[in-house]
Amino acid sequence: MSRSLNFKWAVTVVVGVSILIWIGVLFTKGINVPNSWKAIKEIPTVIGWVSPLIVIFVKWGWRFPIFRGWLVVVPDLNGTWKGILQTNWKNPETGEIPGPIDAYLVIKQSLFKMSCVQMTRESKSWSSSSAINIDSDNQIKTLDFVYTNKPRVSVHERSNAHDGACSLDIIQGEERKLIGKYWTDRNTKGEMDFRFLKKELIETFE
């Protein structure tokens, strides 16, 4: 995944919180700061407090709006997104392009990791690598991932397992959207259009 934190601010926050905890420990134990040796001996105690705080932040805390922008760079995409897929594939028998199909995109994201699972009525895809890429100069944020698709057994005769990739623009506003394109190793490509549905992660298309 691309850079998730503003590391300058991250270092500042970790150092600042560590110093505050250190001062609090010294005050609680009645240790004068000039007594450098006793103060230094309390550093492991400080680490013992800071370490779980970092773990909590990486797993859950980064999602809070208070950290958005200045500390946490990436948007929170956790949840289930509902949308449509439109392929450019033509039916070899009729020469027609099928209409759009319904799909769900389920994103599970922590600060430094994420996975994407896409489901339609006939197949399921899951990401082998994924990243949120940010181009601040051009004000562009994209969700990019490589995936493997496996159709249901009932459609194997006309739809084979395949690999592919997609790039979705992240649109944040009153209605959150993921809009973009995909392409596959079957020489097909198409468009995707998702809207945020809910925070819960669904497990099946049904």
Rank of each mutant, 00 (worst) to 15 (best):
M1I: 03
K8R: 14
V14G: 07
G16M: 10
S18W: 11
S18N: 07
T28P: 01
K29F: 10
G30H: 02
I31W: 07
N32F: 07
S36M: 11
I43R: 14
V46S: 04
G48W: 02
W49M: 13
W49S: 12
V58F: 15
W60G: 01
F64V: 06
I66W: 13
P75D: 02
D76P: 04
L77F: 00
G79C: 09
G79H: 00
T80I: 01
T80C: 05
T80L: 04
N88M: 03
K90V: 12
K90Q: 13
E93S: 14
I97T: 10
I97D: 05
Y104I: 01
Y104Q: 08
I107R: 00
K108D: 14
L111Q: 03
L111S: 02
K113T: 02
V117N: 11
T120D: 07
E122W: 13
S125N: 11
I132N: 01
N133K: 14
D137H: 11
T142G: 03
D144Q: 05
Y147F: 13
Y147R: 09
P151M: 08
P151F: 03
S154E: 14
H156D: 14
A161H: 09
A165S: 14
A165E: 02
I171H: 06
G173C: 09
R176Q: 15
N187F: 11
N187L: 11
K189Q: 09
G190F: 02
E191T: 15
M192A: 13
F196Q: 12
L197M: 10
L197P: 01
